[in-house]
């Protein structure tokens, strides 16, 4: 389950930031490692919401700065929903 969420998050990140899939790992930070700026970061969260058909609460959104953190937050949201 977790792996599936990771793969989907990774796909969104690769598409939106135009980075090489090999560059992206669970520990990659959007801004530090993947070259995102603050606008990219907001757009990524919107794209995650669309991909997983969920709403990431504002206060949670602010603490998501890496692929791993996004995966964890989305997993929690999906668990709550099920």
């Amino acid at each position: 389950m977790s792996e599936t969420v990771y793969e989907r998050v990774k796909k969104v990140v690769v598409e939106h930031l135009g980075v090489d899939p090999d560059q992206v790992s669970e520990s990659s930070s959007f801004m530090g490692d993947l070259g995102a700026d603050s606008l990219d970061q907001v757009e990524l969260l919107l794209a995650f919401e669309e991909e997983f058909d969920c709403v990431i609460p504002e206060d949670e959104a602010e603490s998501i700065a890496s692929v791993g953190e996004a995966v964890q937050a989305i997993n929690e949201l999906l668990d709550k929903a099920s």
Binding site: S38, L39, V42, E43, L46, E49, V55
Partner: peptide, 10 residues
Amino acid sequence: AGKISPFFIP
């Protein structure tokens, strides 16, 4: 309001 892309204005 939550669905607006941050790239909308630019």
